[in-house]
Simulated assay, not measured.
Amino acid sequence: MTQVLALLLALLIGVIAGLRAMTAPAVVAWGAMLGWIDVADKWSEWVGHPITVTVLSILLVGELITDQLPKTPSRKVPPQFIARLITGGFAGAVIGSAFFHTFSATGAGIVGAVLGTLAGAELRSRLGAANNGNDRPGAFLEDGIAVGGGFLVAFLVSFI
């Protein structure tokens, strides 16, 4: 049962990576630092270090800002899509490492990233169309879902 729940949370953190690539690694770093994700004496222990948390948090804030710019490329172009797969897999692996299921959780994170990327693009497109082409409200909504949902997933790891 523990493995199934860990894989489900790894999948969900992958979905978060599909919405915002840097959110997933940043929130698992915070989760590790706060003790929600047990990384002690594991390969992923470095993720909870304050320097790692700081760097990933800065990258997250930078992404939230640049996402609002009109020249930001689609998340579905290869570099953007690949970045989401990598960060989703990484964040899933960190969650999985707490339960010694790194490899399967990496896969779950990658699958979640695909789902989050495609669903997020579709949601933002529909919200933009409903707002006469203005996708900024959808972007802010997606930011909130990604950050809030990411922290929720990291927090839920502590209950497994």
Rank of each mutant, 00 (worst) to 15 (best):
A40L: 14
A32L: 00
S44M: 02
G35H: 11
V47F: 06
F100R: 04
S125L: 13
A93L: 05
P25N: 05
T72G: 07
T52V: 08
F90K: 00
G128F: 15
V53G: 01
A17Y: 10
A129L: 00
L156H: 03
A146H: 06
D38A: 03
T87M: 15
N132C: 09
I95H: 12
F90W: 13
P137C: 11
M22F: 14
G92A: 10
A17N: 06
S97R: 02
H49T: 09
I65R: 02
M1V: 01
G14K: 09
L34Y: 08
D67V: 06
V147L: 12
P25M: 00
I13A: 03
A21S: 15
F140R: 10
W43F: 09
A119F: 13
F99H: 11
V15W: 09
A154S: 13
G128K: 07
F90H: 02
M33D: 10
S97T: 07
F90P: 00
V47L: 06
N134E: 14
T2E: 10
L64S: 08
I65P: 01
T87V: 08
L118P: 09
I82K: 06
V4K: 02
A139M: 15
T117S: 15
G120D: 10
D38K: 02
S57M: 04
F81W: 15
L19N: 11
L118Q: 13
R136S: 14
